[in-house]
């Protein structure tokens, strides 16, 4: 993910808190433009959501949001799932991300993106993602990807 910050922004004693982190990741820059909201988390997953908006539409004929909005949502959610599984914030960037679009997200509907981290090696995090409109059993997209840990950004 390209929108992380350095670990020095967080008190080192605190466990990674996805809701708190989204309070700024979802408020500034691209996350702020999309107005990403925290939706929930577990031991190895984080779910975020984006509300439908006219200026997020990728197909004016149908009102379906741009597929890249779903990419951004799942990029953030999977990246946070990795931190959530680690329990701490470490600098990392997305190596690659694949999305399969099962169906369009209907006009007017909120999109949820659940990121799941299913494995971590010393330097690589392996993630999956599911996008849906409120029912996990009716997904609109699946994602898989990898993140690489950085030695330091500065």
């Amino acid at each position: 993910m390209n929108n992380a910050s350095t670990s020095s922004d967080f008190p080192p004693s605190n466990r990674f808190d996805p809701e708190m982190v989204n309070n700024f990741m979802g408020k500034i820059g691209h996350g702020g433009f999309l107005n990403m909201k925290y939706s929930g988390h577990g031991d190895d997953w984080v779910e975020l959501a984006i509300d439908w908006r006219e200026d997020l539409v990728g197909d004016p004929g149908s009102g379906v949001i741009a597929s890249a909005v779903v990419i951004s949502l799942l990029d953030n959610a999977t990246s946070m799932a990795l931190w959530q599984r680690r329990g701490e914030f470490v600098p990392q960037v997305t190596m690659d991300l694949r999305l399969d679009y099962l169906r369009p997200s209907p006009s007017g509907q909120r999109v949820y993106g659940r990121g799941i981290c299913y494995h971590i090696s010393r330097s690589v995090g392996f993630v999956r993602g599911i996008a849906h409109n409120g029912d996990m059993d009716d997904p609109l997209a699946y994602a898989s990807g990898t993140f690489i840990r950085l030695g330091g950004w500065q």
């Binding site: 993910m1 390209n2 929108n3 992380a4 910050s5 500034i28 820059g29 691209h30 996350g31 433009f33 999309l34 741009a66 890249a68 909005v69 990419i71 951004s72 949502l73 990029d75 953030n76 960037v93 997305t94 991300l97 950004w153």
Partner: peptide, 15 residues
């Protein structure tokens, strides 16, 4: 289109 400070967001590049 900004992600982490000083860099573009991957989602914006994807768009």
């Amino acid at each position: 289109v900004q992600g982490r400070p000083g860099y573009l967001h991957g989602g914006a590049i994807s768009g």
